[in-house]
């Protein structure tokens, strides 16, 4: 998934960025709302993590403007404002979830996964795909009952296919989900990860549409 983190505290922002990146997602971290607006205009994000008190304005106004434009990108609010009224205000403004600082990074990851699944149309984290038993919340895959270990990148790629089972994903789209703006991407990185996934989960797990991209194979 490609995630936009809007947070002005450097210590917390760095930790959150590392945590999300460790989960295999790509993160773009900005500290101001104007930069965030530019980023949203330049790329499609799967999720936004939004702080409410930012140096150039309030996150709530940003969120309202986003929803006012008809943008349905999932948004999780990360904030120090813990009052019930703040929370009601945030959810009413169109946030999908509301996390009060300080929070556990593991909980953040869980909520990101839960919001993403809700948007993928299947909130149930347990999926059976042929011989594969997949738990998206626990990030575990069993093949024929035996656990398979995937690296964070491999999992993030596989999860992107699971999120949109019937959709064709181009190499550029997949790169975007796996790498942030400034990351150095090897030209064949996606091919390498796809071939590793096929080796671990079976050849039919991902189909190649030559010249167009990849999609999840039939079970």
């Amino acid at each position: 998934m490609r995630i936009l983190l809007i947070e002005d505290d450097t210590v917390l922002g760095a930790a959150v960025r590392d945590q999300i990146a460790a989960g295999g997602h790509s993160v773009d971290w900005v500290m101001r709302l104007d930069v965030a607006r530019d980023a949203m205009a330049g790329a499609a994000f799967d999720l936004v993590l939004l702080d409410l008190m930012l140096p150039d304005g309030l996150g709530l106004g940003f969120l309202k403007a986003l929803r006012g434009r008809g943008d349905v990108t999932p948004v999780i609010i990360l904030t120090a404002l813990d009052q019930v009224s703040d929370r009601i205000g945030g959810l009413n403004a169109g946030a999908d979830d509301y996390l009060v600082k300080p929070f556990d990074l593991a909980e953040l990851s869980a909520r990101i996964g839960s919001v993403a699944r809700r948007y993928g149309g299947n909130p149930n984290p347990i999926i059976t795909h042929g011989a594969l038993e997949i738990d998206r919340a626990a990030r575990s895959v069993r093949r024929g009952g035996k656990p398979v270990s995937l690296t964070a990148r491999e999992w993030a790629l596989f999860d992107a296919f699971l999120a949109r089972p019937r959709q064709l994903l181009s190499r550029a789209q997949l790169e975007e989900k796996l790498y942030a703006f400034d990351a150095e991407v090897e030209s064949n990185a996606i091919e390498v990860h796809v071939s590793r996934l096929r080796k671990k989960l079976g050849n039919g797990v991902i189909d190649t549409e030559r010249g167009l991209g990849y999609r999840l194979g039939a079970p």
Partner: peptide
């Protein structure tokens, strides 16, 4: 509350990262 919470959140998150890494 906000002023106190943000640095505490940063410190806790960093400690968690440290533990994970």
């Amino acid at each position: 509350a906000h002023e106190l919470r943000t640095p505490l959140a940063g410190a806790i998150a960093q400690a968690q990262r440290l533990r994970g890494e």
